[in-house]
């Protein structure tokens, strides 16, 4: 009997009084504030501090406080033909790379849309490249591009190492080499988003179209594409932002060379901020210019996305 009493649940009145005093509002703030404080320390503060630094000649290693120089950094950067060259190169890279990823990713999604025996395995295998570290990918593709013993030239038909192109040392091919690797790595990401979009299209739309004897092209143009477009645009948006920030793959493959041939804007920021130079102020200014451009491009995408959704 005693044992039975000991196991009985305590009455509500026995709960500690202070627990009942925590209101929902207090509880929510207890959850929110640690996150907010963390965000302010590691995100908001560096954001504003780097904005301040962009107006100074600060060098992280110079052992002297930042000195205000107004818009000098922005003036120098925006009047430098080299910097505009790097922007143009990055834009070209983003356009070609994301374009190819969209086409290939969407194509793969269409191929894998219908389930077949082993489709799960095939999908998983295709997704592997995007799960790898870009630095590792860069390093092993560097070996594959080697004209003496790399497999890439052999696969594309250059079987004689003497006449095979040196992809990473040629100014006209180096950018394409990076694009090939980026497309190989990230097309699966576009495919994944497209697959989720395709699987959400109701079958009755196609059934109705088939009853109306709509051609396959008509079905693709009027049903598939509009239904997948919102997710496809999100994939394109993510990939464009990432392409503008291309860094690790470039460093792993070419280091920005030969010469300036693959000097993307992120590589230039790194080069200004570190690599013996440590021009922290100027690098911060360049990072802000890139930020403004990415926000502008993203806005265009988001407006288009909204139009697609509304339409």
């Amino acid at each position: 009997m005693l044992k039975h009493e000991a196991q009985a649940p305590p009455a509500p009145a026995a709960r500690p009084a202070n627990r009942r005093q925590i209101s929902d509002r207090t509880l929510s703030q207890l959850f929110i504030w640690p996150t907010l404080i963390l965000l302010i320390i590691i995100n908001i503060f560096p954001l504003f501090y780097s904005l301040f630094l962009s107006f100074t000649n600060y060098s992280a290693i110079a052992n002297r406080p930042p000195e205000w120089i107004g818009f000098t950094n922005f003036d120098r950067l925006l009047n430098s033909s080299d910097i505009w060259g790097y922007f143009s190169l990055t834009g070209r890279y983003a356009l070609i790379s994301v374009g190819l990823q969209t086409v290939i990713g969407f194509g793969l999604a269409l191929l894998l849309r219908k389930k077949f025996r082993g489709s799960g395995i095939v999908t998983t295998l295709i997704l592997i490249p995007m799960m790898l570290s870009p630095v590792v990918v860069g390093l092993f593709w560097k070996l594959m591009f080697n004209p003496a013993y790399g497999i890439f030239n052999y696969l594309v038909g250059f079987t004689n190492p003497v006449t095979a192109p040196d992809w990473l040392a040629s100014p006209s091919l180096a950018l394409w080499a990076i694009i090939i690797v980026d497309v190989w790595m990230w097309s699966p990401f576009v495919m994944l988003l497209c697959l989720s979009g395709l699987s959400a299209i109701p079958d009755y739309l196609y059934e109705a179209a088939a009853i109306d004897r709509a051609s396959a092209w008509f079905q693709f143009r009027r049903i598939t594409l509009p239904q997948v477009a919102p997710l496809l645009l999100i994939a394109v948006l993510f990939r464009t932002i990432e392409a503008f920030k291309a860094f690790d793959l470039v460093m792993g493959l070419t280091g920005g060379g030969p010469g300036n041939a693959t000097q993307m804007i992120s590589v230039e920021i790194y080069s200004q901020a570190f690599l013996g130079q440590f021009r922290t102020g100027r690098a911060s200014a360049l990072a802000y210019i890139v930020l403004v451009i990415i926000i502008a491009v993203s806005n265009v995408y988001i407006r288009t996305l909204n139009k697609v959704r509304e339409g």
Binding site: P171, G256, G257, P258, G259, A261, S271, L275, G276
Partner: peptide, 21 residues
């Protein structure tokens, strides 16, 4: 300033020797 002096020298030498520019 040696680091700042290295950077353009590295870039332009590489562009000429390796890139053939």
């Amino acid at each position: 300033q040696f680091g700042e002096l290295l950077e353009p020298a590295q870039r332009y030498l590489h562009a000429y020797v390796v890139g053939g520019e």
